[in-house]
Write a protein that binds this DNA or RNA. Structure first.
Length: 276
DNA sequence: CGAGTGTCCCGCCACG
DNA sequence: ATCGTGGCGGGACACT
């Protein structure tokens, strides 16, 4: 992996559901959003902070996210030994196909947390190695890659975190309803979203909605929405260099001063300081 | 689920 | 002047 992944931060692979990540030195706790999928670590380790829990992932434990989640993460890399990892997206279509064939028992304790790390089993490590190997060549990635990703997805489903993926994939389950609302938040974050409306969409009472939402995301609906808005704003500020007032407006804040205040509290630096 | 309580966010303001 | 950052108050509504 060290030989393949040269660039710092995220880099794409020949497969769009797979990406590499490299960090050469320790990085302090900072807020980030992860998409649904798994993170397999080759070297170094990370700590993910969500709510009052810490999720450690390292070469012996992979991280599983069943929904997109904003959390804070800290990277630990020994000098000369950068943190190297592989992220593999879990595709709903593949999960559905596998579940149909697997005949897993249906009843699950539900809803369940959207994040968790779990021991890297031998078959999983084996598949991950073969995936990395085949990603070295474009034709092999194209021809062999999807099969290996499918295999990895299967191992995740069989593992301890499989139930979280199954829950989200199970139509009309509470987890799936929450996942749908999260999708809506991610596309409509700039609009006025009130919780009653989101609860309706999840076919739940407002209080049941709050409860399920917290089970899955470890945060409340408003807090989650706020995180997404601030992350999107950061993207606009860094990526497009828009001014602060514009960024506030684009992510749905009516008050630029409120935006500025919350941005600083969230990221530890004011929006002005990060404009690209 | 309904309702009380606590938090959030907007609007307005001052300041640099 | 414009733009960004913060303080304050209260109505609204998120959360328990």
């Amino acid at each position: 992996l060290d030989r393949i992944v040269k660039t710092e931060g995220w880099s794409p692979s020949f497969l769009d559901q797979v990406a590499f990540f490299r960090v050469s030195r320790n990085s302090p706790r900072c807020p980030i959003v992860y998409e649904p999928g798994i993170i397999i670590v080759g070297q170094g380790r990370k700590k993910g902070y969500l709510g009052d829990k810490v999720h450690l992932y390292d070469p012996d434990n992979y991280l599983v996210l069943s929904v997109p989640l904003p959390f804070e993460c800290e990277t630990i890399a020994e000098p000369g030994y950068p943190y190297l990892a592989l992220s593999v997206a879990m595709e709903p279509r593949i999960i559905g196909e596998l579940l149909a064939e697997m005949d897993e028992g249906l009843p699950l304790p539900e809803p369940v947390s959207g994040i968790g790390s779990t021991p890297l089993t031998e078959p999983m490590a084996n598949a991950a190695l073969r995936l990395v190997e085949c990603l070295r060549s474009e034709p092999e990635s194209r021809i062999l890659g999807p099969q290996i990703v499918r295999e990895i997805t299967y191992h995740v489903l069989k593992g301890p975190r499989g139930s979280a993926l199954r829950a989200v994939a199970t139509r009309d389950s509470r987890s799936a309803q929450i996942a749908r609302v999260l999708k809506r938040i991610h596309s409509d974050y700039a609009r006025d979203l009130d919780i009653r409306m989101l609860a309706d969409e999840a076919h739940m009472s407002v209080s049941a909605f709050h409860h399920s939402f917290k089970e899955v995301t470890s945060s409340s609906p408003l807090q989650y929405l706020k995180s997404i808005r601030l992350h999107k704003a950061r993207g606009f500020l860094i990526g497009e260099g828009v001014n602060v007032g514009m960024a506030a407006d684009r992510v749905g804040y009516a008050s630029a001063s409120q935006f500025s205040r919350e941005y600083k509290r969230f990221f530890g630096e004011s929006p002005r300081e990060v404009r690209g």
